[in-house]
Amino acid sequence: MRIIPLSCMKHLLLPALLLLASPAAFAQKGAPATDVEAVKKTINTFFDGMRKGDSALVRSTLAPTAILQTITNRNGVVQVRTENPKEVLKMMGTPHKEVYDERISFEQVLVDAQLASAWTPYQFYVGSTFSHCGYNSFQLVKLAEGWKIAYIIDTRRKEPCK
């Protein structure tokens, strides 16, 4: 067995201690796990409602003045399109043959007081047919009723997908 001298241990322990003490080491910037999970639940409920065609469930996740936008790039022309939330809810709630299925993962969720931001890569399917992919950026606010989506902006493309 080899014994490591105390002087060498100091050099090994110092970087480890600095890393643990660094604010960057905390993935959620110190946010309570309950808030992070509640933010994820709100976003998942939004997409559960979309898959079910339940516009009331989707509406329950939105702040009263929610803004929905998408970034498109057609033939090299980038545009930001604002969607009318009422029209989006109508489209989701109108019976349709295929399920609208947006499959997301949570890459990052940040929370500070009553503000949260979530970054989610996604793939969108109509039934079992792939439609497009991209990233969603969600901004949520913690209202009296809980976490609500105030703003969504996304990218849309056919490839490359994560």
Rank of each mutant, 00 (worst) to 15 (best):
K90H: 11
S60C: 09
A16L: 13
A24G: 13
F47W: 10
N136Q: 08
K162P: 15
D101G: 10
P32A: 12
A150Q: 12
V39M: 00
R156M: 06
H96F: 09
N44V: 12
S22F: 07
C8N: 14
L19W: 04
A144L: 06
A27D: 02
C8T: 12
C8G: 09
K10W: 07
A16Y: 04
M91D: 07
V141L: 14
G30H: 05
K148C: 11
I43G: 03
E87N: 13
H96L: 11
K162Y: 14
P160F: 00
F138V: 10
H96E: 00
V39A: 04
R103F: 04
Q123F: 05
K148E: 13
L140K: 00
G49I: 10
K162G: 15
P121W: 05
V141K: 13
F130Y: 09
A66E: 02
R156C: 08
I3Y: 01
I3V: 08
H96M: 09
V109C: 02
P32L: 14
S7W: 01
A16C: 09
W147F: 04
A118E: 02
P32D: 13
L6K: 09
A24P: 09
F106H: 06
Y122Q: 07
L18Y: 06
C133Q: 11
E107I: 03
P64E: 13
F46A: 08
A16I: 12
Y100V: 15
L140T: 01
L62V: 09
K52R: 14
Q69T: 06
G93E: 11
F106A: 01
T94G: 09
C161Q: 00
I104N: 02
P15R: 07
F26P: 10
F130N: 13
R81I: 13
T72F: 04
S131N: 06
T129E: 12
Q114L: 15
E107S: 05
P32C: 13
A113D: 12
K29F: 15
V80Y: 03
T42C: 10
I152C: 07
T72W: 01
P121D: 00
L18G: 11
N136V: 04
N73A: 11
V80S: 06
G127K: 04
L57G: 11
S117C: 15
G53D: 05
L89D: 00
D54G: 07
M92Y: 12
N75C: 07
I104Y: 00
L20M: 12
L89H: 02
W119T: 11
N75P: 11
V36A: 03
L20F: 10
D48H: 14
I104C: 04
Y100I: 15
T70D: 08
G30N: 04
D154S: 02
R2S: 14
T45H: 08
Q69R: 05
E83P: 04
T129D: 14
F124G: 04
K29E: 15
R51E: 08
V126T: 02
F138D: 05
